[in-house]
Design a protein around this nucleic acid. Sequence first.
DNA 1: GCAAGGTC
Length: 853
Amino acid sequence: MKVAFMVAEKPSLAASLANILSNGKNSSRKGSNGSCSIHEWTGPFHGETVHFRMTSVCGHVMTLDFIGKYNNWDRVDPVELFSCPTEKKEAVPKLRMQSFLAHEARGSDYLILWLDCDKEGENICFEVISGVQNSMRRSIQSPDVVFRAHFSAITEKDIKGALTNLGKPNENEARSVDARQELDLRIGCAFTRFQTKFFQGKYGDLDASLISYGPCQTPTLGFCVQRHDEIQTFKPELYWVLQLVVHTNDGREVTLDWDRVRSFEKEIATMFMLQVKEFSEAVVVAVTKKEKTKQRPQALNTVELMRVASSGLGMGPHHAMQIAERLYTQGYISYPRTETTHYPENFDLMGVLKQQQHSTEWGFEVRDIITDGISKPRKGHDAGDHPPITPTKLANRSDLDGDAWKLYDYIARHFIATVSRDCKYLSTTVTFQVGSETFTCTGKTLLDPGYTTVMHWQAFGKNETVPTFTEGEMANIQDVKLVECQTCPPDYLTEAELITLMEKHGIGTDASIPVHINNISQRNYVTVASGRRLIPTPLGIILVHGYQKIDPELVLPTMRSAVEEQLNLIARGQANFTAVLQHTVEIFKQKFLYFVKNIEGMDQLFEVSFSPLAASGKAHSRCGKCRRYMKYIQAKPSRMHCSHCDETYNLPQNGNVRIYKELKCPLDDFELLSWSAGAKGKSYPFCPYCFNHPPFREMRKGSGCNACTHPTCPHSLNSTGISSCIECEGGVLVLDPASGPKWKLGCNRCDVIIHLFDDAQKVTVEDGVCMLCGAQLVNVEYKQDKSKLINEATEMSGCVFCSPYFTPLVEKHRAVSRPPGSRAPRGRGGRGRSRGRPRPPKDKMAQLAAYFV
DNA sequence: GCAAGGTC
């Protein structure tokens, strides 16, 4: 039987498609990469019965990067990034997606691509094709091997229709994405590296380990700074409002609105007031009643979800999407990333509604709708991706924790609102005449709350009704006065407004908008204030003003769409890929060169707000070259700076740096420092000079004394190493001599930590080795009354792994805040031998040799 | 250490 291999963009879609196409009769198994599943069934295709095998990727298979040597920030001039070679790498190496696809496609006759129907999806089609091309039974060049399914909704009609009407993947669209990737990479990285190195090399209090530039994040920041500038340059203006208070016939007071609203000239306003003051009564000249409608919402898409999460629930878009993702994988809501606000024609609205009818929160309202019949949802926009976001099963408050519940509550209420009636009210406007001047008052009377019973935050307040007046009635004027007011500056941009601006200008996508907002906040360009308003920091303001000074296009919101217009030429086959790419790269290279040449313009702004390196930080430890104190700059990235030598030395990050007993490095005379990521983290002594300029070939840049191969220095690996690491290949467990009284050994490669001899006064590594395992012996000393040794001994030597009297005092851990991607702890256990000791070296020199293989 | 775009 022939095999048709089919690939979707994500595992959930593969499952839905398989279910539809097989009429629910498919078998499923987990794929070798642990993330993707394979669904199989037999069915008709091209006039015969074939075996269908459907799986998915997880988004892009590949990612673009510069070839290795161009990733060295110290040796590469950023301008080279506009022309240097690039390569495609696996986007998530641990998924081993290429080999997974090649394996599952083996021996297939047809390849049917079910990727999302957008340009990114088209690009992923070709990533899949290149992954499976050697696995197919026939060449992918053959005309009837590779097919593309085009679908605009995940419905039975659409999906089955797509299978019987297959097309071909669109190479032009895919190529336009290739071009976009290359442009973003070259432009973003060139500007980012240049700015970062330039300003970090000059200023000590930037508090930013990275000063990034990007075609999406920078215009995003631009919006926030633009509002800041509007606030700063705002000049308040005085204006006057004529306020009239009349009596109703039941004795209440009503303040009326002046038809002229306001006057910016006091004399004129005063003149009107004097005219009105001539009268003691206002004539009711008209009472108009009009039925008005507040429309129920359209079906929910991602951007609206993020807006409401930010403005209504106080959740940032990034956080909100993480929670939405979780609700989705737990089966509470439908796929949360979609642009569509229109339910598919055959969407089972009643089915979804019925799931909610026993809710303790909104079951009552739901049952009402079921009884009265649902209102047809408003027409929305169908982007052809996923259906709108809806609940998919009932959750009660106790099923979900805080934010997850808040988000689910909103999604459910929003859905119910879309099938509810509109809110209807009567708007009554009473018009009063006083001499030449007209005044009004307007009130609302609720006729039908409709959807606002479930979206209760949109319901009317109680005091919005207007008192009854009848036409021709005379109302007593209680008071006439002129109120002096001032125009107010706008407030800072809310996150919700920013999302709207980004959407409007096509900056980012529904999936990347939260990422860009998160970026500008994490990079310290904006802070999130109360009400989730975004206030730019001095750094953010200077960056934007700097671009505006040198080349305003760099921060213009139109820049992204201008580039995309070029890319669309490729997508539509109207221009040659290479020609467009070269042309656009060249433009940005010229912009880059101009920016570099004129960086002084931005630097002048930095000078005003930031302090030069030489004036930053606190005197700390001595420089080995000039013997003067260097300054410790704490702002990210923390550094040491010698103002006399005008040198900056990088430091290990994310921990505390202290002076280590005023000891010195024998090689360069720099004062030794000790770095620690806290009591449960890693720690080691280091020389600030060797850390940046490793003295030995085998020592990597960014290493401490625990990786130094100095033959005699008492702080080197040679003197403080105990044994090869019990977990990783090639690492050595080294005593941190500065860690007491919470003594610890740490691996100099991985994040294994061994806590030992708590509260001991002194721990030293001895010359001898353990006869059993070859580890260096250790000597421990306790104060008399603090001894934890057997018989309250104050001093003892032995092997931390093999000496039985030591084992109760030794405990293995993993450093907290271990780097992402590292393996999870494998449980407690101090004795390496228990898991099969990985070849303990026989002696110190062998140990060193083993370390550097 | 960098971009933006997919997705987990």
